[in-house]
């Protein structure tokens, strides 16, 4: 039971962490809760399914499972990056200097738009992610069953997070992102194209969310147009838990939230797993409002 919930928690936690990264990166740079981020994740899941279906009809004889997964991930990441870019450009950039509430409402609008768009375009029924692998149980120890997909998700999440860490710490664009997050004006004075950096941030965040979408679609096998909402809130919870704006915080927060939720569902009651997640969030905020890794931010004047 314990190990089973541990593995389940790590799987779901990795996915939360990937989505939370997008929230936290965007928040770190423009201090916006991007409510539409959950929908990007949902769109990623749909894009993956559509890509596999298209490949299977276009290529005679079908494609090998590994290639199908790679294709789905690639398609989802590309589409989601494009969505992130467009979203920022159309809905958030004109509001860069508006009062705080305006971009937030705009983000809610984008979220409603995207969710209903997919509902209209793809219908209200659940979409099935194609069953790609025959034998999905990697090892079975009686009480603990770990599937190949779970291992792939956990490993994939850690790889992406490591990659993101490298990009942010060791590349030029990563340095620019960190500089912009610290002080936009000073970054602009140093010759950093701030608009460009913000666009790239949105694209990277959305790309991670798209990958998370494909992973979760593969894990559960079913996708619905409404999955973005709850996953989005959970991931935001994870970002806050770790300290919003803090990238390692989002990774740790996602893992912790996934584990807590999974143990909560296993030991207390599956119906109340959302309540458990939110109650823990509220408790953390009461005890340490800046999150686990966040520095103590004073209200900006």
């Amino acid at each position: 039971m314990f190990f089973q919930q541990l593995v389940n928690g790590l799987t779901i936690g990795g996915v939360y962490a990937l989505i939370a990264l997008g929230y936290t990166m965007v928040y770190g740079i423009i201090e916006l809760i991007n409510f539409a981020h959950g929908e990007i994740y949902m769109i990623g899941a749909y894009a993956g399914i559509i890509a596999i279906a298209a490949a299977q009809t276009l290529i005679a004889g079908g494609i090998p499972p590994i290639a199908a997964v790679a294709l789905a991930l690639l398609a989802a990441m590309l589409v989601c990056a494009a969505y992130g870019f467009t979203m920022e450009k159309l809905a958030y950039r004109p509001l860069r200097h508006a009062p705080r509430l305006s971009p937030l409402i705009s983000a809610l609008g984008v979220s409603i738009f995207l969710q209903n768009f997919i509902m209209i375009a793809q219908g209200t029924r659940d979409k099935v992610f194609p069953h790609l692998f025959e034998n999905t149980v990697a090892f079975d120890l009686g009480s603990v069953r770990v599937s190949l997909i779970q291992i792939a998700i956990i490993v994939g999440c850690f790889m992406m997070m490591a990659l993101l860490h490298l990009v942010i710490q060791h590349t030029k664009i990563g340095t620019a992102m960190r500089a912009t997050a610290q002080d936009k004006t000073a970054a602009a004075l140093c010759g950093i194209h701030v608009d460009h950096v913000i666009s790239v941030t949105f694209m990277i965040g959305s790309l991670l969310a798209g990958a998370a979408g494909v992973m979760i679609a593969m894990y559960y096998g079913l996708v619905n147009y409404s999955i973005g909402y709850l996953a989005g809130i959970k991931a935001f919870t994870a970002a806050v838990l770790g300290g919003i704006g803090n990238i390692p915080g989002a990774m740790i927060g996602g893992m912790i939230l996934g584990l807590l939720e999974s143990f909560g569902a296993g030991y207390i009651s599956p119906e109340y797993k959302d309540v458990i997640a939110f109650s823990i969030l509220i408790l953390v905020l009461l005890i340490k409002p800046s999150g686990l890794l966040g520095e103590n931010l004073a209200e900006k004047a």
């Binding site: 159309l90 971009p103 409402i105 705009s106 609008g109 979220s111 738009f113 995207l114």
Partner: peptide, 9 residues
Amino acid sequence: GAAMVVLMI
């Protein structure tokens, strides 16, 4: 949803 975005802008 679209109207919310437009209104804010």
